[in-house]
Design a binder for these strands. Structure first.
Lengths: 230, 230
DNA sequence: GCCGCCCTCACCATTTTGGGGGAGGGAATA
DNA sequence: TATTCCCTCCCCCAAAATGGTGAGGGCGGC
């Protein structure tokens, strides 16, 4: 199976890979869904194309409780554990079921550097017990698949989503870190025991290196690039 | 093995688990190393305690090329592929080898929401070929272990590293997102087709919800909490 | 129906940032 | 040795952000 994946060099091939996986794993639907930072989405999945189109058209990722919940979790999420109570959520659920998505499912969140985020989901119709048995048996396999699939997808898409940036000097890192924590220039300068004038040089050079238009932008970019850790 | 892990309820038990894993996998050292956002670190590992102490004391995570490189990658990293040329890095390497760390190794980066980051590394002394054979055989197992180990560590530590925050309204998200991209208030207001005065209300209410002292802080917090996606 | 939250807009004084200069000493690298 | 960063400091002035306060309409939940 991994040999098959390693031969995939296009996103279309990934799509085919996911489809064949569905048969191997004897499940109705498998979905690899990459939510790129820039708002672009890519998916390799077994859903009905019309549902996919609608999902993207309506930007359902914003209300899809699976996406929203997985985005702030580490563990794989069983769909049963989600909150489906909100009105918009119930409506979304109704549409999804009409489109043939199973009532049982679980999703594995996958993260990369710079905020890359993807979901690998398996789902089908069925009762709770059967589903619990299935997930219990398959979860390790699916975690690994999620991992390799994401690795491959990033490789194909070109993982340099955010262009490379010049590394920051230690002082620049200190500066942006303290700014990210909510300090203003005066505070940061005091903390670092330097004059505010000096501090400004660091901020501006960091901004220049990052191609940022202002301090907020520079801090956001430094965080997203993993250049500073708060 | 997973049963053994599921019974671990303390960080000490995790330590024991990692030690027994080392024997099962016939390797010199295994290291689970969680780098918490706040700068706190936790590790379950098989290194010499004096090296661990020194590592923490000197804050070597800041210069350790394994940590630095893994932090901005998705794939597991083989230590051979790293850049060991910088002076401080070579010195660090010398100290590490003196402390008994193997010359061959690889590390699997693991990420959670809100910027949680951990590393699971395996290493030992040996030549390149033997190491390549070992990693090729074991990498899938180790990826899974890394996954479960991190899941368990977060569970034990309490994964609410950053206190919960009130959710942001759609307009607040829009606002912070556009600010994170480097727009100033005037631009954002124009983009959203609202007056700058209105925009300010969103910024301030977002700041209030997040407990942020200024816009930069609010944007940084929103990014780290996964409340906005840029 | 009331309460809370969201969306929208306004004004004014003050504080904070940004733009654009210049300058010296030190460390590292090519 | 020359060049390139890095760290440190200074000045002036314009532009932008912030703090505080007030206010109306809408929607959804209890």
């Amino acid at each position: 199976m991994q040999e098959m994946l390693s031969q995939a060099t296009t996103l279309e091939a990934l799509q085919g890979f996911v489809e064949s996986l569905r048969d191997v794993y004897d499940i109705e639907h498998l979905v690899y869904h990459s939510v790129n930072p820039k708002g672009g989405q890519y998916a390799a999945l077994t859903y009905d194309p019309s549902w996919v189109e609608r999902y993207i058209e309506e930007d359902y990722a914003r209300i899809d409780p699976v996406v929203q919940s997985a985005y702030r979790r580490f563990h794989p999420v069983d769909w049963k554990a989600l909150d489906w109570s909100a009105k918009t959520t119930r409506q979304f659920l109704g549409e999804a079921i009409d489109a043939g998505i199973g009532n049982q499912g679980f999703s594995i969140p996958i993260r990369g550097p710079s905020g890359q985020f993807a979901l690998f989901s398996a789902n089908q119709k069925g009762n709770d017990d059967a589903w619990a048995a299935y997930t219990n048996e398959r979860v390790s396999d699916l975690i690994l698949i999620a991992h390799y699939l994401n690795e491959k997808a990033l490789e194909i898409e070109g993982s340099e989503e955010r262009g490379p940036v010049r590394p920051l000097s230690p002082r620049e890192k200190d500066t942006l870190t303290l700014l990210a924590l909510g300090n203003n220039r005066a505070n940061v300068a005091e903390t670092l025991n330097i004059s505010e004038n000096t501090l400004r040089v660091y901020i501006e050079s960091a901004r220049f290196k990052l191609g940022a238009t202002n301090t907020t932008h520079a801090v956001a970019m430094a965080l997203l690039h993993g250049l500073i850790v708060v």
